[in-house]
Simulated scan of single mutants.
Amino acid sequence: MISQPYRLYVERTDVTKNMARYYAMEISATLFGDACLVRTWGRIGQRGQCKIHLFACEKEAVDLFLQLTRRKRARGYRPRSMEPPVL
């Protein structure tokens, strides 16, 4: 059973490079009580790709979640801003 919800949604946009990407992650429990990390990424407005990681314990899933979060922040991904995009 998952002790607390782990969810992340970040975006990376650069108008000069025509870049509009998103990255989402969530840790949830499987039907058998194992931890499951679901990652989804792609171009904003598109379906994108999905990858599922299964773990025997929640700690392993959280460790990967935090590692990937640090990696995405270093590459320039940020939480979505509420201000309208500049065209």
Rank of each mutant, 00 (worst) to 15 (best):
M1R: 13
I2C: 02
I2W: 00
I2A: 00
P5D: 06
L8P: 12
Y9W: 08
V10Y: 01
V10I: 01
V10P: 00
E11I: 14
E11L: 06
R12C: 05
R12V: 00
T13A: 08
D14M: 01
D14S: 03
D14R: 05
V15P: 06
V15N: 07
V15C: 04
K17E: 10
K17C: 01
N18G: 06
A20W: 03
R21F: 03
R21V: 01
R21Y: 02
Y23C: 05
Y23L: 04
M25P: 06
M25H: 06
E26F: 05
E26H: 05
E26S: 13
I27Y: 01
I27A: 07
I27T: 05
I27W: 03
S28N: 07
A29S: 15
T30M: 00
T30G: 02
T30I: 00
G33V: 03
D34M: 12
D34W: 10
A35C: 04
L37Q: 03
R39G: 00
T40V: 07
T40C: 06
T40E: 13
W41D: 01
W41N: 07
W41T: 03
G42P: 05
G42R: 12
R43K: 08
R43M: 09
I44L: 13
G45M: 07
R47L: 10
R47V: 08
G48E: 00
G48N: 03
G48Y: 02
G48A: 03
Q49V: 06
Q49F: 05
Q49S: 12
Q49H: 11
K51F: 07
L54T: 09
A56Q: 14
C57Y: 12
E58C: 09
E58W: 12
K59V: 13
K59N: 11
E60T: 07
A61C: 08
D63P: 04
L64K: 06
F65Y: 14
L66M: 14
Q67D: 12
Q67V: 12
Q67P: 06
L68W: 10
T69Y: 05
T69I: 02
R70Y: 07
R71C: 10
R71Y: 09
R71H: 11
K72A: 03
K72L: 05
R73T: 08
R73S: 09
A74Q: 15
A74L: 12
R75E: 09
G76E: 02
Y77G: 06
Y77M: 06
R78C: 08
R78F: 08
P79G: 05
P79C: 09
R80F: 09
R80W: 09
S81K: 14
P84E: 08
P84A: 11
V86D: 13
